[in-house]
Design a protein around this nucleic acid. Structure first.
Lengths: 331, 331
DNA sequence: ATGAAAGCGCTAACAA
DNA sequence: TTGTTAGCGCTTTCAT
């Protein structure tokens, strides 16, 4: 037995389709008897409205597109998890598309969003993305585009929701200053990426104003590299008394190296990171971190989307504030 | 300018809608001139077919539903990532729904799948799920249901794709036997779930055949509980010389407790887990584990789905084989 | 090679 | 209170 339709119910009850439609949505001017009759039969037949027909007719899809590098990343999956929960409460669903940081797949994904007439798009662009015309066109056609995390350069005016990268690095740096640590190793990711650059600049700025501590900056493009780099710095006679990790990826490598070298945290060396919060809490002692929450990012994105849909035409650049979370790895 | 439609193109070119439709899909009996004219205008107007209209008309959606506890989990997000890649190659998209391990939300999600007329469903059931009628009905209506990871009990005949749970637990148990450990703590999740039951039975079976080692079984429903339970067992005068963790979730709590108690791994206590592989590699020494890959699981699920769609009516129970990965936490 | 027409399932303006 | 009708955008059969 295939899916029930309004038509089928109407025929079985010998009434018109519109009456059935109205009865099902508790339209005021349907008699109680009819309403009851209809709703009972619908329940019996397990009638479920056809989303395609509704959307076609009303031209109002309850679907958002999400385009991001991959869902398999300790940051993005928490973003997705929260976003899905939020949109569900408003009757929306998510079409989740992975670009794999490939601009051409990203274009395909945008087309898929168009074909599915999504009501809005959340997009985290690839490092290669230079051309924003397809997304701009959607915006012009009334489909809000919310850029998140990795966003277009400042030259593009659009809705952006980002982490407070500079602020987070600043907080971490200041914490280290206050702790009185003197020999600090600071590890960053690919300095070509704006996210690394922002964190680095901000981190350095704090230490330029005071000379009590000496900072060594180094780079690692992966957890494994962070591991190697840390081993190198901790093989000298005088080891750093604090390490700053720009990301979870780096934290993973650093922590492993410290364990391997039997460095006592925080007694010998303090450890602080910028993180989503999951990784720092895996260890004992838990790592102090400045939180950049994928979950909060999702909430902000969603709110911005809803106000765009409600008619706000302002372009906004929002920021998830950085929160310092104490663990047991500093002092 | 709203979206272009076949009608609009037809009017502009003074030809019929059907001709436009055919020209766009390179139907053989359309003249080259017409085809070219149409395709050029379509490109110019950036025509994008309306998925809702197509699906309504053809009754063939290119959407799969995925229902799982949460996407924010070191196992499931790798499942999703791979599944999304696979289905995209076949022109399908994913409607990803989180149940939060709540049977009532799960029911809502199933309804959403129905309303969206998904072509098939991948579902990882909640521990509470007892009632499979809604999913059975979908199956009867020609929508394949592939249960994965957490699946209905053996009494239900349906398509199941699981980890080699019994095998994985057996490998872990045998490894422990070979290592000569004598006082083993084995931690499992909710024993009501078939996944826990299977792993438990298989683990116990190995030790029933020999009395050299003593096994204590305990349960934990979360990382925090695993942490507490472990602390409890390690507060006695004689501590276990090996711990088996049924899952990453448990491993996290156990490892943290061992660190907290300054237990030396593997010298004092060996540690082995069943895991996706991410968590065990975070620690030093790396934890020995039996791999159960979310990515492989996704591929198997997808293949099964495609053969169901192609008409295979066989019910199958498939298994992702378990692979033992050596770390430094045993002997 | 092209067009006309029906219909997928639904909503909503209008009529009765 | 209920029915009639048109139409959302598309595919497809049947004519021409």
């Amino acid at each position: 037995m295939p899916n029930a339709t309004l038509k089928k119910i109407a025929e079985m009850l010998n009434i018109s389709i519109s009456t059935v439609s109205r009865a099902l949505k508790n339209h005021p001017d349907i008699s109680d008897t009819t309403r009851k009759k209809v709703q009972e039969l619908a329940a019996l037949l397990e009638y479920e409205p056809n989303a395609y027909a509704i959307h076609l007719r009303t031209n109002n899809s309850k679907l958002f597109g999400v385009i991001l590098p991959t869902v398999s990343n300790y940051f993005y999956h928490s973003f997705i998890a929260t976003l899905e929960e939020e949109v569900r409460r408003f009757g929306y669903s998510l079409l989740i598309l992975q670009s794999g940081d490939n601009a051409s797949i990203e274009q395909d994904n945008i087309r898929l969003c168009r074909t599915n007439r999504v009501a809005g798009i959340f997009v985290c662009i690839t490092p290669e993305t230079k051309n924003f015309t397809a997304l701009q066109k959607m915006e012009e056609q009334g489909v809000p585009v919310i850029y998140f995390d990795k966003v277009p350069p400042a030259s593009e005016t659009c809705n952006k929701v980002c982490m407070a990268d500079a602020e987070a690095a600043k907080i971490a740096a200041e914490t280290l200053v206050k702790s009185g640590r003197k020999k600090i190793l600071a590890l960053f990711g690919n300095p070509e990426m704006s996210i690394s650059a922002k964190r680095l600049d901000s981190f350095n700025a704090v230490f330029q104003q005071q000379t009590a501590a000496k900072v060594t900056v180094d780079y690692a493009y992966s957890s494994d590299e962070a591991h190697q780099v840390t081993l190198k710095h901790f093989s000298k006679k005088s080891i750093p008394d604090a390490v700053f990790c720009m990301s979870d990826e780096i934290l993973i490598g650093v922590h492993k190296a410290l364990q391997e070298k039997s460095v006592q945290i925080p007694k010998q060396t303090a450890l602080i990171a910028i993180s989503n919060g999951f990784i720092p809490k895996l260890f004992y002692p838990e790592i102090n971190y400045v939180e950049t929450s994928g979950s909060k990012l999702a909430s902000l994105c969603f709110n911005r989307m809803m106000s765009c849909l409600a008619g706000s035409s302002f372009i906004q650049e929002l920021t998830v504030d950085a929160v310092y979370v104490k663990g047991g790895s500093v002092n």
